[in-house]
Simulated scan of single mutants.
Amino acid sequence: MARYTGRGVHYQVVQDIGSRIVGGQYAPGDVLDLRALREELDVSLTVLREALKVLTGKGLVDARQKRGTFVCPRSAWNLLDTDVIDWRIDGGDAERVLRDLADLRSVIEPAVARRAALRRADADLETLDAALEAMTSAGDDAVAAEEADAAFHRALLAATGNELFARMDLLLEPGLRARDRLVHAHSGADDPVPSHRAVLDAVRDRDAPRAELAMLDLLAKAMKDIDDMAVHAESR
């Protein structure tokens, strides 16, 4: 699920309550005191209810007659939701988020690269080339680099020719974007262009084994970035 992009009071209420739940201020099963929340946040009941609808869509809260609005167990949370990922990172759970993402990618993306090499069309190469060029041009622009990286991996999924693989961008992209934001904030991060170019070159050559190995190398570099960030955080 994409990040909630509302603004104003409604947006702030979603952010406030969501971050409290994910951060552990409210425990699973806790019943939310809506009257107290209204007074604390100084919002109308309408605004509060609309915010709770958004959080219900993310799996964080639910409501039942005679029980009220309560916090759902973690097993119900949409952990791939962009806001939930951000709240986990802000709450100090960044390393676990990134390592879980790396583990997930290690299962999916090497197979994607292999299939893309076997099935890609010329139009797929054009899209991948454009994404890599955007990545090269992004330089220190973290937002542009994040967009380019997301576009590259999205194009690679599409190049498999499998619509279900293509829709796995919904699964991978929120975490990938969060990873990019954290990595680009870390000055010692590795240049991502060469490893992505190696994947693209193998896909272009229709060399499936080399594409798979190139993706494994890319993922190894991504894991090194996470390790370096963890060391840097500990040293601080």
Rank of each mutant, 00 (worst) to 15 (best):
R181E: 04
A36G: 00
E39R: 04
D30I: 07
A158P: 00
C72K: 14
E126M: 05
V9E: 13
V71H: 10
A111I: 14
V14C: 10
D83K: 06
L41Y: 01
D180I: 08
A123E: 14
T5H: 08
L170M: 09
E163S: 14
M229S: 05
Q65A: 09
G91E: 05
L48R: 08
D141H: 02
D103P: 00
C72R: 15
E212W: 00
D30A: 15
V47S: 12
A198E: 10
D217N: 09
A155K: 08
T56K: 15
A189T: 14
V47P: 01
V43Y: 05
V107K: 05
S235L: 15
D141R: 04
A189M: 08
E234P: 00
A150V: 06
A123V: 09
E133W: 02
D149S: 12
V97H: 06
D33L: 07
I108F: 04
D30R: 14
A208I: 13
L219S: 02
G57T: 06
L182H: 11
D93S: 06
T69A: 01
F165I: 00
E234Q: 10
D227M: 04
S19T: 09
A63R: 09
A222P: 00
L80S: 07
D205A: 15
V9N: 11
D16S: 13
L171V: 11
A134H: 09
A211N: 01
D140L: 12
L101Q: 10
A208Y: 08
R105V: 01
A121H: 10
D141A: 01
L200C: 01
S106T: 03
A151Q: 15
R179V: 00
E133M: 06
L101S: 10
A145P: 00
V47W: 01
D129E: 12
P192E: 02
A130Q: 14
P28Q: 11
A138H: 10
A198P: 01
I226D: 05
S19V: 03
G18K: 04
G68N: 09
D124I: 04
F165R: 01
A51S: 15
F70S: 10
R197D: 11
G139P: 04
V193D: 04
S44Q: 06
A94D: 15
M223I: 03
V71P: 05
V143N: 07
Y4D: 03
I89M: 15
R167P: 00
A134C: 04
V112R: 07
L125C: 11
A117Q: 08
D190T: 14
V31I: 15
I21N: 03
D191W: 02
L170V: 06
G18R: 05
L172M: 14
M223D: 14
V112C: 14
Q65N: 01
R20L: 13
L182E: 12
G29R: 13
D191P: 11
T46N: 07
A113P: 01
G68D: 12
D201L: 14
L171S: 06
L101G: 06
